[in-house]
Design a protein around this nucleic acid. Structure first.
Lengths: 132, 132
DNA sequence: GCGTTTTTGACAATCATTATCGTTACCACG
DNA sequence: CGTGGTAACGATAATGATTGTCAAAAACGC
């Protein structure tokens, strides 16, 4: 144990999860994704799906949303930082970018001496269709 | 049933929770608050604490934060809409107002035709003390 | 191939929150 | 000042997503 080799290994399961996310539109829960993988015949454990999603989220490759309902939703997202505008009725989601918000958050945090800043922002509303 | 009697009754328990929140600084979980009430000798059920907090939150009288840890935290907040800058190490919290963000969110939502807009925003960072 | 180390995965455990439902107590009205 | 209807309470059980466990399997460097 001389070196702390943080060797991340390439496994079939990891590829499967990653590939699935690449094909999916919209947000899905870990359990959803797990069910889809099984339907495809991929043999992946639920535990592994959770672990993989966490890893991808930490690496910034996927997006996590935590709706008030309580279930975590994952989605492969476009590169860079952005936020979501979610319909509270049908769940339709729009990706929105807010450079102004980013810099505002940075500035506010800096004013209070906070470092290493991140933030989460979700906008909820009723979409045109559901508004009728 | 001529009237929609949304009669909210005044109960000892509701007052107790409300009063406790009035004296507390910072965020506390429902279970925390419940434990404190018991220490004071107030006899309030955990279920009731949850219900009361939900009610107060719906009424906008208290503030709910959902940290990644998963536990909901409640706090009596100043009137009006605001957000929080939270130290991810020690939990120290600063209330921040962002009128620009409010209007930005409204505008973005309107552009996509979304109505009845609300949003959640939390800023995380490491506070000056913990940065050291 | 071989050994080492990560990763997997079935299952159990955790734990905050919610549902249940009989009981209690608030409050308007007479 | 009673009383009836109804909202609120509260002990307990249920829920359900997520995390821990640990033996077995798979990757990768050599």
């Amino acid at each position: 144990m001389s070196e702390s080799s943080t060797a991340v290994r390439n496994t079939r399961q990891r590829s499967a999860v990653s590939a699935l996310l690449g094909e999916m539109e919209g947000f899905h829960s870990a359990q959803d994704l797990h069910a889809m993988l099984r339907q495809r015949g991929e043999r992946v454990g639920l535990t592994t799906v959770y672990r993989t999603l966490q890893g991808l989220a930490d690496a910034g490759e996927i997006d996590v949303m935590r709706p008030p309902g309580g279930e975590h939703l994952y989605r492969r997202c476009s590169e860079g930082h952005h936020h979501h505008l979610v319909c509270r009725v049908c769940g339709r989601t729009v990706e929105v970018a807010g450079p102004a918000v980013e810099s505002w958050a940075e500035r506010v945090a800096a004013q209070h001496g906070y470092a290493d800043v991140s933030h989460t922002l979700e906008i909820f509303g009723t979409c045109p269709t559901c508004v009728r």
